[in-house]
Amino acid sequence: MVTVDKAAPFGKAAEIAWQDLGAGVKRRILCFDDHLMVVEVAFEAGAVGALHSHPHRQASYVQSGRFELTIDGQVAELGPGDVYFVSPDLVHGAVALEPGVLVDVFTPAREDFL
């Protein structure tokens, strides 16, 4: 398994290593450059993406599972095919109601993930 190279034209998920974040959450960076990053995040049932904020814009796609999302105090339950958007610096987090995967897109890229 490998990590993806900056600005690589293709990201083959099956060849990209997962990073275990603990507490039932893991992620892998699928592609990125300085301006954009695509990250896949897998959650076990009950796993929590703790409330946090960052200066990046984030758009996320629910690939599978069901999640309770909180963004700036608003709460919604989302499932496969649903999306959400987080403006810079808004407090947000997720709870996996069942096992699932989110696909996160950040701009600019999350240097702290590298």
Rank of each mutant, 00 (worst) to 15 (best):
K6Q: 11
T70V: 14
I71L: 07
E98R: 00
V75R: 08
P99D: 07
S60V: 10
A14R: 10
Q58F: 03
D82R: 00
G100P: 04
T3W: 15
H54G: 02
V91G: 03
L69Q: 09
H35Y: 15
A14C: 08
L36N: 15
D82H: 00
R27Q: 11
M1E: 13
V91C: 09
E98I: 04
H92E: 01
K26I: 02
P80F: 14
H52R: 03
S64W: 00
E15F: 10
G22D: 02
P108F: 01
H52S: 06
G24W: 00
V62C: 06
W18H: 04
G22W: 04
V105F: 14
V101K: 06
A59N: 11
F67M: 09
Y61M: 01
E15A: 09
A94T: 08
A42T: 02
Q19K: 13
D89P: 09
H35C: 14
S87W: 07
E98D: 11
V2P: 00
Y84F: 13
A94G: 06
V41P: 05
I16H: 02
G65K: 09
Q19T: 11
L102M: 05
L21K: 09
L97W: 10
E68S: 10
G81N: 06
L21I: 08
G65W: 05
R27F: 07
V105Q: 07
L97F: 09
H52K: 03
Q74D: 14
S87H: 12
K26G: 04
V86N: 03
P55G: 02
A47N: 08
A8Q: 06
R110G: 01
H92D: 00
V39P: 07
H56A: 06
H92Q: 02
Q63Y: 06
D72I: 09
Q63L: 10
A8K: 07
L30R: 12
P99C: 07
G65F: 06
M37A: 04
D33Y: 07
H35T: 15
L102Y: 03
D34V: 07
L97T: 08
E40Q: 12
I29L: 11
H52G: 02
S60G: 13
H56R: 05
V101R: 04
V95A: 11
F67V: 10
G81Q: 10
A45V: 14
H92N: 01
L21P: 05
V103F: 05
Y84V: 10
E40M: 14
C31N: 12
G81M: 05
G24M: 07
R57K: 10
D72F: 01
V25C: 08
F85V: 14
A94F: 06
Y61P: 00
Q74E: 15
W18N: 04
K6H: 08
A23V: 12
R66L: 13
E15S: 12
A8F: 02
C31V: 14
T3R: 14
H54V: 01
S87C: 03
L36I: 15
A76E: 04
Q74R: 15
L69K: 09
A76M: 08
L78T: 11
L97I: 13
W18P: 05
R27C: 11
A96I: 05
D89R: 09
D89M: 11
V91T: 13
R28N: 10
G49S: 08
E68C: 10
P80H: 15
E77A: 15
H56C: 03
L30H: 11
Y84R: 07
